[in-house]
Design a protein around this nucleic acid. Sequence first.
DNA 1: ACCGTTCATCGACGTTTATCAATGAAAGGA
DNA 2: TCCTTTCATTGATAAACGTCGATGAACGGT
Lengths: 114, 114
Amino acid sequence: MTSLPARCCAPIAAGRLDDSQAQATAEVFKALADAHRVKILNLLANSREPVCVCDITDSMELSQPTVSFHLKKLVSAGLLNREERGTWSYYSIDGDALKDLDRIFQTKERTRTR
Amino acid sequence: MTSLPARCCAPIAAGRLDDSQAQATAEVFKALADAHRVKILNLLANSREPVCVCDITDSMELSQPTVSFHLKKLVSAGLLNREERGTWSYYSIDGDALKDLDRIFQTKERTRTR
DNA sequence: ACCGTTCATCGACGTTTATCAATGAAAGGA
DNA sequence: TCCTTTCATTGATAAACGTCGATGAACGGT
């Protein structure tokens, strides 16, 4: 495991990945490898509007610093976007990232429409 | 995070998950949250035949116990199948698991054809 | 100019993880 | 019956991770 960064989400089942692709893929999965982060992603994936940290915190049984910690991981992985409005921070799903991810488990024999 | 086990792979963007679904989803991502395991999965997803531990080990820069450790995690997550042949163990992708996973990032507005 | 709210970061802590060398179990020859 | 090969498990260790309370920065209202 030596190579340098690659972009995420080459399909796993449609040809061999090199080390750097495997690494990039693992980074994204690491961001999702926690039930609290899955909940956050799910919350934001199902909300039309961006959501502030306070509301995310209210919806989880975690302290605010811990929520911020998880949010940071999700942003770093490219899954969320962060937007400041005055004292507030609003977070939202990155739709493009989601679209990329939606290709990752595709198998060779499969196609997709609209 | 209190609830009991659920089965994996409810779509993240098509409605809210309860705690146990989020937990189940995170478990699968945990199994994928390591570059070596992504490589193993990729190797097996692209090989027609099951592959023995020795050949998997040869293809990676890891000791055999460490490879077995990773294989165990992937089997526990339901992503791989294990099959014994004499002294050998052969591993292969679980096609159904892969199919389930392929739905996890689907968005509401999307359909799929073969 | 003050105060309250919102949020990120820091420091500390306990837990989980990845790794290897050593060991052990089971099968297949010679 | 012994030796070799294959693989899983164990024990040890270092690194990464999730969590919280405390702190501090920035904004907005009074």
